[in-house]
Simulated scan of single mutants.
Amino acid sequence: MESDFYGLQKDIWKFIRRQRSDLNEIIKAEAIDDDTWSKYLSTLYSSNIAEVPTDNTRNIPDIRSIEVTNIDQDDVTNALRNLKNRKSAGRDQIPNELLKYGGTALIEELTKLFSKILKNQKIPAEWKVSILILMFKKGARNDPNNYRGITLLSTTLKLLTKIITNNLLAKTSIAEEQQGFRTEPTRCKLELEGKVIEQVSQFTYLGIPTTSYGDLYHEVLQQTIKANKIAGCLKGPILRNKHISKQVRGRIYKAVIRPIMTYTSETRADTSKIKSLMETSEMRTLRTIEGTTLRDRIPSKQIRERCKVKEINEWIQHRRSEWNNHISRMETTRIVE
């Protein structure tokens, strides 16, 4: 039975987390009456909307002057293809899956319905009714400001708005300053001596992947994978070799494997997720040196003491202090300073 548990522990923990989320997701707000909710929600988005400037020096088409008068089956099919599964339905209880897999007959009926709506410029009254779910965040539960509202709209209405958005984007261009409604971030045009410099979202420099969107976790993950590969190569001949003392094997880990994971760690800001990733990778290697597994339930601190290895995040913090002192001792004329 114990072996079955360890073989299925990933699935078991997924089930437990799912049950916990289901229990914590819905909280009854009995302490807040309906009048308080009504006043809070009526003033939530009551700020004045700024006037849209009429200056059009860049010859960008005014979106208000564009009319979407015709919707064909290709528009509906393309919008249906991009619908996500397992999304909450609105008051009509029509999920996205029902629209996506309804077949050609449903696409024809949706096309007729959407075309009629555009022609009459009026949507069904049922689509104007939504379901508001208030999610508790933190703080006092009798304070409406501590709740986040999620509105469940009709999936058919959202499908129509998606089709209209696609048609508008096909007929107009987005200003470079705008970041919303973009599939890719904007990039500036760089030139050097008359030559345009190619811009990419990711490249590898000195073996370290660098991204334009600052995905530091992905960079550290790649370093950790490389370190684990080296540890796998040394696993048989060195790390599990009983003819070599644990202290010597620990020194080999510190000299060969740890530098790969901690490369550039002196100048980066690690998150709790990155720290957990490196600690997990380090303990996997140290348990190989110690000849134990998680089932033995030996504390990590005890394994580190036996291998004479300092905890990796504490070691990184010490290295950062040394690097900071090194920079501080430099003269002000140095480029680094």
Rank of each mutant, 00 (worst) to 15 (best):
F5A: 12
Y6H: 14
I16E: 06
R17L: 09
R17F: 10
R18Q: 12
S21I: 07
I26W: 01
I27E: 02
I32F: 06
D35G: 00
T36F: 03
V52A: 09
R58F: 04
N59C: 02
P61T: 12
P61M: 09
I63D: 02
R64Q: 15
T69W: 01
N78G: 07
R81Q: 15
K84W: 00
L98N: 14
G102A: 11
G103P: 04
E108R: 08
E109T: 13
T111W: 06
K112F: 06
L113S: 15
N120G: 01
N120M: 05
I123R: 14
M135H: 14
K137I: 02
P144G: 04
Y147N: 07
Y147A: 08
I150L: 11
S154T: 12
T156S: 15
L160Q: 10
N167Y: 00
A170K: 09
A170H: 08
A175I: 00
A175S: 03
E177F: 00
Q179Y: 03
Q179W: 03
Q179D: 03
P185R: 15
T186A: 05
Q202E: 14
T204S: 09
L206D: 10
G207Y: 11
P209D: 12
T210N: 03
T211F: 13
T211E: 09
S212I: 11
Q223N: 10
T224A: 15
N228I: 05
N228E: 11
I230E: 04
G232P: 03
G232N: 10
L234M: 11
K235S: 13
I238F: 04
L239N: 00
K242R: 14
H243R: 07
I244F: 10
V256S: 09
R258P: 00
R258D: 02
S265L: 02
S265V: 01
D270L: 14
K273V: 11
L277G: 07
T285E: 00
T288F: 01
I289W: 01
E290A: 05
I298V: 12
P299E: 09
S300G: 14
I303P: 01
R304A: 04
K308S: 12
V309A: 06
N313S: 12
W315V: 07
W315A: 15
Q317K: 09
N324C: 05
S328K: 15
E331H: 15
T333R: 10
V336S: 13
V336Q: 14
